[in-house]
Every structure is written in structure tokens, then in C-alpha cells.
Amino acid sequence: MSGSMATTKPSTVYFFGTCIIDLVYPQAGLSAVNLLEREGIRVVFPQGQSCCGQPAYNCGYPDEARAVARHQVELFHQPWPVVVPSGSCAGMMAKHYPSLFKGDPFLPRVENFSSRVIELTQFLVNVLDLKLEDKGEPVKVTWHSSCHSMREMGVGDEPKELLRRLSNVELQELKRERECCGFGGTFSVRHPEISAAMAEDKVADIRATGAKTVLSGDCGCLMNIGTRMEADAKEARGEVIDGKHIAEFLWERTNG
């Protein structure tokens, strides 16, 4: 949980959509906004936002990442929480922005921003204590924890808590829930074969659960897992199990 984050329900929040959601999984972002608005929260989405800067930062280009980070910090300047539907981007903005601006006069503003960053499921459970009325058919799902949500943002039981609040949803946990799916941002293209070997094992783990849908709080992982499954299906190595961001799933199940 982000350090100084208030645990009382705010009237307004910022929403940072993330670049992968923006370009590939916009329904996940839209669903998250819908969920927040349904709770009576005013959601502000600065149209000037882009990417958290993590790709350049992780590749060893901190100057380029810093410029992008600064752009977001300046844009999200009101004292509202910044809700992020990705543990990885949230981790970048909450944990790595301050070190990126070490010794920079802009640092106090960055620290203020970073302290307001909160991952979506943490916000839904710990701040909103979201009540959910399940309107869907009984279904078995499995959950993929992203590495950065667990190990940088400290997301623990929150997503599963949300799933437990859906009366018709059965969660079948993965055997190796804490193991990386192999995405790793640019790692997936720098070492595609290793990344694929990791994805392959993750897909097998998901299949073994017998779940109909695999849920995650990070679309990078979903993109890696999903495109691997699609390729498998094309070569008749197994069926595609639907991958979905938890926000989209929650919205679908409760917006009957």
C-alpha cells in the first residue's frame, strides 16, 4: 500500500491509463473508470498523459524516462489520488520516480506525486471497500499476480478479495502464482526465446487449473500470456483461455 495514501474515500481521483491499456486493452481502462464512477467518484483523465516511462528507464535510458515522468507529474498536479490499473506502472511511478529525480530541484513535486499513486485493486479494496453484486453465471477463473504488483506495490490478497466478493466466481489458484510470466517489458523482445519459455510454463499452469478465464491486474502480462496462447491454438497445441484485466471482469459481472 502506498505510504501516505488516505484510506478515506476521496471525491475525485486521477486515472492513469497506462500505455498498454491505452493502445491494446482500452476496455480494461474504461471498465476501471466505470467501476470508480459507479461508486460516486469523479474520475479525471488528463488527456495529455502517455506512458509512465518504465520502458526507457529499464533499458538504461534514464534521461528519456525522466522527461516522460516529469510530463506526467506536471499533468497530475492536483492533490488527488492517482489510480493506476497496473502494478507495474504504479510501481514505476510510486517507487522509481523519486530515485530518478534524486538531486533534482523538481524532486519534492515528484515525491508528492509518487505518494499519491495507488494500484487499482488496492484502491478498490482498501479505500473503497467495494461491494459487488454478481450478476453472472457460475464460472471458474484463475489469477495471475504480476511481479511488480506483488514485489513493488505490495499487492497481496486484494484482487482475490474482490473475486471472493463475486458470489458465482470460483477461484482456482495457479501452482506457481509467484513466478514471472516472462513479459518483463523489453525483455520480451530482447530475449524472446527465454521469455517464451517462461510464458509457455505459465500457460501450462493456467491450463491445468481448468479455469475459463485468466485474470490479472497487469495488461503487459496478459498480452504476453494471451498472444502465446493464441499461437498455441493456431498450431493446435491447446485452446485459448480468455485473458482479462480484473477491472473488465468485475464490471462485466456486476453491470448486468
Binding site: 491494446v24 520480451s188 523482445v189 526465446e193 510464458a199 509457455e200 504476453n224 498472444t227 502465446r228 499461437a231
Partner: peptide
């Protein structure tokens, strides 16, 4: 490179 990992192209 992404496809070298036995993955389809993201849409």
C-alpha cells in the same frame, strides 16, 4: 522479435 517467442502479434 516478439513473435520469435512463439507469440502472435498483439492487436
Amino acid at each position: 522479435d516478439w513473435k520469435k517467442g512463439g507469440r502472435t502479434r498483439p492487436r
